[in-house]
Computed example of a mutant assay.
Amino acid sequence: MELVDFETQVAGNHAHGLTTKRSPCGTWFYKPELASDARGTNERAFYDAYVDRAWDGGASVEGGAATPRSALERAFVDARVPRCPTAVTGANDDALDVEGYLRLNNLTHGYERACVIDLKIGTRTWDPAHSKEYVEKRKASDEGTTLATLGFKVCGARYFDANGALVKISRARCKEIRSSEELTRELLEDFVRDPASGEANNWFWPALLRQLLSEPLRLLKHRLVGTSLLVVYESGRLAPASDSAVCAPEAKLEARYIDFCHSVLKESVDEVDENFEAGLKLFQRFVEENR
């Protein structure tokens, strides 16, 4: 199978000379991964812990011991973590596997005019479990960004303006935005602005953050370090839902956590992922204050 370029990517992997790809049908997203790179190994281990097969019999196996999985945890993982069928491969999957790539479901598949934003969540992108060299590198990278003050930073975005033209935020522009609370506020507003009416749709971000913070994130057995929130919706179709959902069905909204190559297994089931949760709470406060 010959892969094609992934045109809706807004941030992330161009590692080891490989670029992100998609399957010709558009269903699958292929993320560069090398077996010799610890980041790829760690991300695959994360997906292994939550892959569909791990739910068989209501238990998963970690370190040789069976761990019960609740229906609540399964529903949360299904809703917020992309499907990764290559974490456990079978006869029907082998033909779709491509060496050097991790295969995930393409969250923009089926969208005609996909608006996409990648937001790195947390007050920092390192963990005490990481090496001293990596921690120092990430501290230097985090300095001067909105992570500590807003709980997130912008890694990339694309949306459509009032003229119907695609606006894609460049890497250089992202660096400017992630160092400014005002530019970050403007981008969040522009990202969900209705391209026809110009309406700011200021209800969207507070509604989404309320939903995310109401979910059982603490059931995950990993600390999410350097993980992003990827939001996708169909341009021009955002509308408040009449029930507890964030948007009306026609919005075709996706809001998923992605990038787990630096995740860390928790030391106990009661441990709280304070960095990631603090990021979501600061994010919520920011959008509530600016609605």
Rank of each mutant, 00 (worst) to 15 (best):
L3T: 11
V4R: 12
V4M: 11
F6Q: 13
T8K: 10
V10L: 14
A11T: 14
N13M: 12
N13K: 10
L18M: 15
T19G: 08
S23E: 05
T27E: 15
F29R: 10
P32Y: 14
A35E: 15
A35T: 13
S36W: 05
S36H: 10
D37I: 07
G40T: 14
A45P: 00
V51G: 00
V51L: 00
S60L: 00
E62D: 03
G63A: 04
G63T: 06
G63S: 03
G64Y: 02
A65S: 06
P68K: 01
R69I: 12
S70V: 00
S70H: 00
E73W: 01
R74Q: 03
A75Y: 02
R83A: 08
P85K: 08
P85C: 05
T86N: 08
T89I: 10
T89C: 04
D93L: 06
L96S: 07
L96H: 04
L96R: 07
D97T: 13
G100W: 05
N106C: 03
L107P: 13
E112D: 15
L119Y: 06
L119T: 09
G122D: 12
G122M: 10
A129R: 09
E133S: 14
E133D: 13
V135D: 00
V135P: 02
R138T: 06
D142P: 12
G144L: 03
T145I: 05
T145N: 08
T146N: 14
T149P: 01
T149E: 10
G151P: 01
K153Y: 01
K153V: 02
C155I: 02
D161A: 07
N163L: 09
G164E: 02
K168W: 04
S170R: 11
C174M: 11
T184W: 08
L187F: 12
D194K: 01
S197V: 05
W205C: 13
P206F: 04
Q211A: 10
E215C: 05
P216W: 03
L219R: 01
L224E: 07
L224P: 00
V225M: 12
L230T: 08
V231F: 11
V232P: 08
A239E: 11
P240F: 02
D243G: 09
D243V: 10
V246M: 06
L253W: 04
C261N: 15
H262F: 06
E267C: 07
E267F: 00
E271D: 02
L280G: 03
K281H: 10
Q284V: 07
V287P: 12
N290F: 05
R291P: 05
